[in-house]
Computed example of a mutant assay.
Amino acid sequence: MNPIALPLLALSMSTDAFAVAICKGASLKNPRFFEALRMGLIFGLIEAITPLIGWLIGNIAAPYVDVWGHWIAFALLVVLGLHMFYEGLNPCREEIEQPSRHSFFKIALTAFGTSIDAMAVGASLAFSEVNIFLAAGLIGLATTVMVTLGVMLGRVVGSLFGQKAECIGGLTLIAVGVWILSGKF
């Protein structure tokens, strides 16, 4: 594999997580850097593990991941997006009730939804001469950085748009799910 291809692959694997991180950051009440880093590390770890799983499964799972992976990611992101959109429309919700951090389960579920494509990439890397541990590490590192930056950018978006940012974030999650389903990620 071309030496430039691996870092580009890592960046491309983290773009969907970056978009989701902006939404997550916008839905938080004034997220701090350590919360953004926590989310980045959770996303990055999951995004690094999934290509390893895909690589290990290789030929056996490649058709399954290719066929069902987009549907799983789509369903997870649409459900989370609809929930976020509903929460943004809730008129009873005051700014004070905005959480200062997301639960590990919500973050991990979202991260898994955005990393299904990395599993398929891992399965395809099983057929090329690539150091899978280097590839997975670069994907995890790129995702950690992109998600951390995305959450902090979402902080700005959230302060500008307030509760509407959560509606926008929910619609963005749904759009990412549709985009994954269409095979563009």
Rank of each mutant, 00 (worst) to 15 (best):
C92K: 15
M119G: 06
L82E: 03
M84S: 10
M152H: 03
S115L: 14
F85G: 08
R155D: 02
D117V: 03
G88R: 08
V67G: 03
L89E: 03
T143P: 09
G137A: 05
S159T: 07
A108P: 04
F74M: 12
T114N: 09
E129L: 15
P91Q: 06
P99Y: 04
G150P: 03
E95N: 09
W68T: 10
I96V: 12
L125K: 05
V151C: 12
S128T: 13
I96S: 06
I72Q: 02
H70C: 14
I139E: 04
L141M: 12
I116Y: 04
M119L: 15
G81E: 01
G58S: 04
M119W: 07
Q163N: 10
A108K: 03
G162R: 14
L89F: 11
Q163F: 13
C92I: 12
V121C: 09
D66C: 12
A111G: 05
V65F: 11
V147Y: 12
M84Q: 10
E97W: 10
V67R: 12
L149W: 07
G137Y: 04
I132D: 02
K164V: 15
A135G: 01
G122C: 14
Y86E: 01
R155E: 06
E129P: 07
K164P: 07
R155N: 05
V157I: 13
